[in-house]
Amino acid sequence: MIKASADPQWLPLYDALASDVRLHIIRMLSEQSMNNKDLAERLGLSGAIVSMHVKKLQAAGIVTSAMVRKDGGTHKMNALAVPGVEVLFPHVRQETRTFHEVVVPVGHYNDHEVYPTCGLATTSKMIGQFDDPRFFLDPERVQASILWFGRGFVEYRLPNFLLSSQQLEEIEISLEIGSEAPGVNRDWPSDITFSLNQKELGVWTSPGDSGEGRGALTPAWWTDQVNQYGFLKLIQIREDGTYLDGQRMSAVGLHDLAVQRNQWTLRLEVKEDAAHVGGLTLYGAGFGNYNQDIVFRTYYRSM
């Protein structure tokens, strides 16, 4: 997240956002990474003009570009470098929020039940073989930076660092996630259920398993024909309900959770009887478009 202010140093950022074309580029890159040629074709503009717009977005820190292998050649692929921009005005006093943060690698699950298509990989190699659930028990799984399955669940146990003198105000969970199609298919909906401490928070329908263009962080050895990147989702649980990317997902609030003293239990699941059984892919640091693992925060105030 870029946190800008009214200082003149941020003028390149504001200039980068002051263009319909550049805003359109941001929207397209939020869906998939693209090279300048693809952007030019979609926008109906010349390559030189698109290159100028991309350079402005790069200078502002909004877009990052990297050379990747694709279709037998090397291409300079563009992707969003940040999930958003926040502008802080000097006359607005910002309240400092205190929180505990736990960052969980995607392979550090404590329980699972998965069905093909499925698999795991580190940033350097596959763990075991494709479509063999037994490798989800392999001790090397803790090194995984991506995992996927057709249906089932993975469950993580995280430490609860809240003290008796700290009042929980909000829980925030951030992760990059998407569907799991055989190969890739951007039109492959999947109903993914999020649960915390055995309480269902709600269901998000992933639109597909993106793969038109490589992810910004996709390792060079990773083939083009499988999962590339997902969607960065932000879950917020407050007293009045659960929100996904700022939109209310359910009425489940903090008071509905059975808070355990020492741990939180987070489950990500595609149920067998879901309307859309389209699987789940979870991207960690080193894969996808966002260089992060599962980020779990508990905001609190001292009593």
Rank of each mutant, 00 (worst) to 15 (best):
V154R: 10
L201A: 02
D132N: 13
E269V: 01
K70E: 14
H112E: 05
S19K: 07
V270G: 04
M249C: 01
S124H: 13
H108N: 15
S51H: 10
F194K: 03
V21W: 08
A79Q: 12
Y283A: 07
D15F: 08
T193I: 01
T223K: 15
D111S: 14
Q247N: 12
D187M: 13
S165D: 11
L45P: 03
A144T: 07
E113P: 00
A16W: 07
G44W: 07
L17G: 11
R42S: 15
R238Y: 00
Q292F: 03
V252M: 03
A144H: 10
E86A: 06
N110M: 14
D293L: 06
I26H: 07
G213A: 10
L43G: 09
E113D: 13
V277G: 07
W10S: 05
S210I: 08
S124A: 13
G278D: 02
W221T: 05
G211F: 02
P105Y: 04
Y299V: 00
S195T: 04
E200Q: 15
D293C: 05
N110D: 14
R27S: 15
T281H: 03
E95C: 02
D224N: 11
S164Q: 11
N110L: 06
Q32D: 12
Q260I: 00
I235G: 00
A4L: 07
F231M: 14
A40L: 06
A181L: 03
V226F: 10
L147C: 09
V203N: 03
V203C: 01
E172Q: 12
N289W: 09
W264G: 01
V103L: 09
L88G: 00
L175M: 15
